[in-house]
Amino acid sequence: MKFQYYFKYIIFLLLFSNVALSNDKLDLKVKKLTLELRCMTCQNQSVYDSDSDFAKDIKNLVNDKFKEGLNEKEIKLFLTERYGEYILFKPYFNIKNVLLWLFPFILLLFSMVFFIKNLKKN
């Protein structure tokens, strides 16, 4: 019994692990965006995860804006004009944040070069 149940579950998992992805497209777009927004009235929680009034408002707002035909970028711009960049969990990739975004990969590149050089020496 128990085994059968597990077996079924594994099959289920293997076949339908995509259920979450085939939901309504709009909801998905809203989810994707609100996951990257900070709930300004909470402690380090995303708008998507939060149940606070602020988060609810933003969720509705994002939903409406998508319906109006705006794309993700425009909505983000709208929100940052209103609340500042603080609302974005994923800072813009621009000149100001270039250090933040490129630093890890530059470091990776440098250490790779360094490593390969040492390798050649041997």
Binding site: E85, K90, N97, L100
Partner: peptide, 18 residues
């Protein structure tokens, strides 16, 4: 003097690939 956030999406996009 401006406030920015660096959260989950940033770390997922940088730390994981590394």
């Amino acid at each position: 003097n401006t406030r920015v956030s660096v959260g989950g999406p940033y770390f997922n996009a940088t730390v994981l690939p590394i």
